[in-house]
Design a protein around this nucleic acid. Structure first.
Lengths: 263, 263
DNA sequence: TAGTGGTCTAGACCACGTG
DNA sequence: ACGTGGTCTAGACCACTAT
């Protein structure tokens, strides 16, 4: 067992003890608990512990890393705040998963105006591999022409078509993804991605606009030409701020709205 | 000086020590640091410390409340996470304010597609007191017919009219608010509210839809009739989850977008 | 009863900002 | 040099869950 303090890593990601030399322009100081946090994050990214599973207890991690329980605790606190881990008193700390009730609506903000948030039915229209257009490649930070997965799907609430999505995924991470597997999966798409492709969506940026429905979109969503739609452009990231999904959604907001909370 | 532990409040908001009696259906257990948090929140609500000012140091608060510094620290941690307080290492802990660079864009999510987020110019079209319509009264949880303040204003980025807002405020909190004071104020409207009316906006819920511009809106925003607009319905709360503002905004999203981050 | 996370304390020392 | 928040430790005990 090798502690953080004694490890070679201490040289680069220095301990919290006094650091020699002049004050750097950009402070490189990294407290111990953040180094522990980075180690845990790496284990999560590498799949050492799978979504839904418990990670080792705080005491065990403290011994493993050679720090106090309080320090491990602070690292886990931050990871829990970022929804990478979920604490359950008396049971343990678990790797967060999109296949759980609590996570269902974190990335699905469209809700019916009346009644409870509901899970829409998904119909896969298309799923194929092809060369990423320049714009997609730029956002995914891959070389232009790199292969990507394109998914087109329709979401419906109670048989009302509501969202038309066009989704681009980084090709390397999703080999073997097909329309059949997407259609067969019970649960949210991000749940499939994390369970079967080892890629977990951590956070998204969304840019929202209002647009008029053009021919093909109006057709798919069963609204008149020119009908106002919400255009939601999403960029999703996994561990280490790596962009892996570009998504464009057209949403009907008659009877539905996009819910957002500013905290 | 009276400590939390000895105070009468301990009877109701019990300490963390063993609580007698059977396990209640809804656990009423409230840890010490949350009681401290509630005390600090009350001081904030009551204006004991004003926005922008420093609150007493952790050591002083610990002595005042008769607990350890670590417990005060944990209370402040949560308040800082909720943006009620701002910590500044080496200087102290400060009451958050909307009149600060860091807070400028937390409640203003509309951004230019290109370039940095910018502060729009505001033109007040109207500001008057009148009886709240039933729907507004319901949302503000006041009696129907209670007086409210109605503000209508236009936001423009670089002389491009972009947002038309209709804002309803709980009447009792904003006596003496006029179009003149709104126009004269340098800085965001929420900054005026907190500085001159003692009401600080803490969090908002927003419901977003796409709609077609009708006559009057199209006119004010200088867009064609039927132009797609973002309709943003906002409900804002101050301390203790009290709703104090209902706002409806129509946003032009040509050259602009609504930015949202899912964390 | 045992094990986990949750709370609280007391003390030492570090990093940062200001005199 | 001083005061502030920030980090780290060690230990005690509480609340919750499973067995």
């Amino acid at each position: 067992m090798q502690s953080v303090r004694d490890s070679a890593a201490t040289t680069t990601a220095s301990s919290h003890r006094k650091q020699a030399g002049r004050a750097p322009v950009v402070p490189t100081f990294s407290p111990l608990y953040r180094q522990i946090k980075a180690l845990i994050t790496r284990s999560l990214r590498d799949g050492d512990w799978k979504p839904g599973e418990a990670i080792p207890s705080e005491q065990m991690l403290a011994r493993r890393y050679g720090v106090s329980q309080g320090t491990v605790r602070k690292a886990i606190d931050e990871l829990a705040a970022e929804h990478l881990l979920v604490r359950r008193q008396g049971r343990g700390t678990f790797v967060a998963s999109h296949n759980e009730a609590r996570a269902q609506f974190r990335f699905l903000r469209l809700r019916p105006d009346e009644g409870e948030p509901a899970q829409p039915e998904s119909r896969i229209l298309e799923c194929r591999r092809l060369r990423a257009p320049a714009e997609i490649a730029r956002l995914l930070r891959t070389r232009p022409g790199e292969t990507a997965v394109l998914i087109r799907r329709l979401l419906a609430f109670a048989n009302t078509p509501t969202v038309l999505d066009e989704i681009w995924l980084a090709g390397g991470r999703f080999r073997g993804l097909t329309a059949e597997r997407l259609s067969a999966y019970r649960g949210p798409m991000y749940g499939l991605f994390e369970a079967e492709f080892g890629t977990r969506m951590i956070r998204c940026e969304e840019r929202i606009r209002a647009v008029a429905a053009d021919g093909s979109v109006a057709d798919a969503l069963d609204v008149p030409l020119g009908h106002p739609l919400l255009l939601v452009d999403r960029l999703s990231y996994t561990y280490n701020d790596v962009a892996v999904e570009v998504r464009r959604g057209y949403c009907v907001t008659s009877g539905f709205h996009f819910f957002n909370e500013l905290l």
